[in-house]
Amino acid sequence: MTALPRLSTVFLAAITTLVAVLLYSPLAVPIVSSFFTIAHGNVDWSSPTLATYVALAENHDILAALRTTLIVGVCTVILSVVSGTLLALYYHSRRSGRTLLQFIIFLPFLMPPIISGLALLIFFREIGLERSLLTVVIGHTVFVLAIVYRTVLMRLQSMSRTLVEASYDLGATGWQTFWRIVLPNLSSAMVGGAILAFALSFDETMITILVTGTQSTLPVRLWAMMRLGFSPDINALVALILMFTVLLCVLAARFLIPRQVATERT
């Protein structure tokens, strides 16, 4: 797209700047207020403070919710990576019913979360499963499974068949080939999928609200607090979480960009 007239470039840059401002202003509010006091829409720039961060360390309620979120996230990651990888292998092995299976896996990701959440809520009630962290983990796993599955499947499909064939030619059994050739080649996609799954689980709000029991995750806790207004230490938490998620995102990008296949290097 060369030789753009100057005027249109200025126009496009202006709109892009506007979009960036629109996207970043909701982020700026809590981050600025984690360091400065805001009263009646005016920022007091004169006195930066870390008091909110100190207060956060004392807020046991929020820290407990954060711990719950991490537990749910880790369980979700383990369950979704294991089942997502197995399902991707199943699809890749061209066994029967794979298109239908893939459709079912994608359903909770395509449907609005309120529908997936309510369907699970009724299901848990019908089978007599009390709402608890277990139901939250099931809800999250069902939701993020599609992402892990897709990530692993894409890597499987881009993997050269010659690697597997070479392994068989050299006398390896099916299991040996799986453990020593297929799995190592999938590992970075699995890590990437795990990070995406964790990020989604960490911020999942709508399904969680519907299937959670007494112990709530951080987004649900924040949602409940929002009606009353937030205490300033929440801003500190938000600033920390944002830093953490950006870091996770950079990591995920690194793992998801395919490595050079080891054989090509030598």
Binding site: L23, Y24, P26, L27, G41, V238, L242, T245
Partner: peptide, 26 residues
Amino acid sequence: LLLVPLLMSYVIKIYAIRSILGLNGF
């Protein structure tokens, strides 16, 4: 840069936007 805001907590974003749009907001 334009996609990073997706990573920000959803509830917090709603809250921040509400305070921006509010009577005393920016």
